[in-house]
Design a protein around this nucleic acid. Sequence first.
DNA 1: ATGCAGATGTTATAAAGAATTACATGAATT
DNA 2: AATTCATGTAATTCTTTATAACATCTGCAT
Lengths: 137, 137
Amino acid sequence: MNDELRRNLALFPIGIVQKLTELTARQIRYYEQHHLIQPARTEGNQRLFSFNDVERLLEIKKLIDQGINIAGVKKMIGTQTVPSELPSIDQPDEAVAKTKEMSDEELHELLKQELVLRGRPGTQGSLIQGELSRFFH
Amino acid sequence: MNDELRRNLALFPIGIVQKLTELTARQIRYYEQHHLIQPARTEGNQRLFSFNDVERLLEIKKLIDQGINIAGVKKMIGTQTVPSELPSIDQPDEAVAKTKEMSDEELHELLKQELVLRGRPGTQGSLIQGELSRFFH
DNA sequence: ATGCAGATGTTATAAAGAATTACATGAATT
DNA sequence: AATTCATGTAATTCTTTATAACATCTGCAT
């Protein structure tokens, strides 16, 4: 449910994605040109990739390595129209206030802040919790 | 077990970490100076943060926001001596060959490549699998 | 064989992002 | 008032990324 949100959070620069996927920057940009992925951008226009993007790139690579061309890949995994979401910081306050009527935006906010916090010795991850424990575990 | 590995993978540049934690770059570097975190570095010496690093930073922020000073934070969450690990690409071949006697390094390798791949329509995440399904789910 | 399209490499140039260092500042302590 | 802690700010340099143009290679159709 917000698993999707997490996987869509744009977090990695292209350099990291290169290492994770063993694709060249050239390839990654080329695949973007063909709408196989649609990474987010920073204010300065630099690409930021989500886990979903990396996942798709790994799938693409697998198919490419099998000799399938871009057209084929498109048919098999479709094209991407919605860009991955930037982690943006808005109103860091009222987060705790509302709990029921949280808009998607606000939830997104909370998510970011609690993103990685789980039950650690001496830590009490707030509101969310079960939602986030899934992240790694 | 390799959950730890995943959480230690250095993936984020400082800009992203700023947004995720709402700390300034100045603060993040200052905390590093005081060994509260020890992010990895790129070849070009730029910091790369792992989920663990972000997690620790969120804890630090929480304590700081409560008025606790660095000395106090150190006592409470300890200092960091081992840097987060860089995702490095080595021998992309023999990955499939060995399955039993995989060194930690090799497993690390595999992990990176399969990092985000899970059961997707039309996808068959290789070897690992159970190990990785935990990542998000 | 020739030519073309697809996929990727390479190079040049500009801009964004980040590193380090030094100095400034506000608050709390002595 | 002087000092220390935590952070802001500014200057400079280096790294990383973006775009665009051109080069190369491969497979296929002529």
